[in-house]
């Protein structure tokens, strides 16, 4: 048996999550005494294979396909590869594209799937850790099956950068083109606009705690007082209270300002992914258990509507 990691790429480059995936795969493979296989599907596949030839990887399986991502193609290639090498664990990054085919892969292979895991231990079977209720609760789950599909949360494992000595093999599979019932027609950018939050030194970022669109003026007043730029977490964008180019997070922009002031933001993992590298993080939130305080440098546990006007007053003096 073996561990099989499914690499992800975009715009001709391997994505960082794939290097983290190799770390998770190598640790698991070592625990289980199994080889680590990596599969990459796309083009230029030789370039991908050399990027993935990293410490701990025994074999990189390549499938040359001039297409960025098609879940039907991924499924067909991986199912046939699994037939050939019978991996115990299939590891994928917990990303939009994995969400688009990993559950189907699990059903087709009749394997259990556990998603968004933050740690993997080998005991009797596998024991994985994952969060529930928006990171408020941590659970461990036992997988009582020799064969499983697991997606791992981005940024939980360090990336592997040390080079390896992997064999590179082209996967020998045939694609049934009639089974491909979806066609990618293009790509677009959601977040275009004149404000570039990635350039700001100080960001005042607002979340669900602001309650209503009218209350946003409080945040703009604070930004004015601090010479800062206004950013936001996802619910504000979903409600159309601010345009998408203000969104910080996994599906928005990644920012690293000198000061990031999170107002009424709970700190869901998707948001944190977009701002955790800020130099100093300040959080104002009424919930002392809000995950934002896990990464904040300074915190105020109080009603933002009481605190923020006082801060504005201090700076307007």
């Amino acid at each position: 048996m073996s561990v099989l990691a499914v690499a992800e790429h975009r715009n001709g480059e391997i994505r960082d999550v794939s290097f983290e995936l190799i770390t998770a795969g190598r640790e698991l493979a070592e625990d289980r005494g199994e080889p680590l296989h990596v599969v990459v599907i796309g083009n230029p596949v030789d370039h991908f294979a050399s990027e993935l030839n990293l410490d701990g990887v025994d074999t990189v399986h390549t499938f040359d396909r001039n297409e960025e991502f098609n879940h039907n193609v991924y499924l067909q290639v991986i199912v046939q590869l699994v037939d050939a090498i019978d991996p115990s664990t299939i590891l994928l990054p917990h990303t939009s594209n994995s969400l688009d085919f990993a559950p189907a892969l699990a059903v087709r292979l009749n394997r259990p799937i556990v998603t968004d895991v933050v740690s993997i231990k080998t005991e009797d079977g596998l024991i994985v850790t994952r969060e529930m209720y928006g990171s408020k609760v941590e659970t461990t789950i036992g997988i009582r099956s020799d064969r499983s599909v697991i997606t791992i949360r981005p940024s939980e494992w360090d990336p592997t950068i040390a080079p390896g000595k992997a064999a590179v093999e082209a996967v020998n599979v045939s694609i049934d083109e009639d089974a491909i019932r979806s066609t990618v027609t293009g790509f677009g950018e959601v977040a275009a606009g004149d404000v570039d939050i990635t350039e700001a030194d100080v960001l005042v970022s607002v979340g669900r705690g602001i309650d209503s669109e009218e209350n946003l003026s409080l945040v703009f007043d604070l930004a004015d007082a601090l010479d800062a730029t206004v950013a936001a977490s996802r619910p504000i964008i979903d409600n159309d209270w601010l345009p998408a180019n203000h969104q910080v997070g996994q599906s928005g922009k990644v920012v690293s300002p000198q000061v990031y002031i999170a107002i009424g933001i709970s700190g869901a993992v998707q948001h944190v992914a977009g701002m955790k590298d800020s130099d100093t993080i300040v959080a104002i939130n009424s919930d002392p258990n809000a995950p934002i305080f896990d990464i904040a440098d300074y915190g105020i546990v109080d009603d933002l509507f009481d605190v923020v006007p006082e801060v504005i007053e201090q700076f307007d003096l």
Binding site: R10, E68, F69, T95, S96, N97, S182, T183, V184, T185, G186, F187, G188, E189, V190, A191, A244, N245, Q247, Q250, S251, G252, K253, V254
Partner: peptide
């Protein structure tokens, strides 16, 4: 919706 403000048309 993909990551980083990118979307794919299918």
């Amino acid at each position: 919706e993909l990551e980083g403000g990118i979307e794919e048309f299918v």
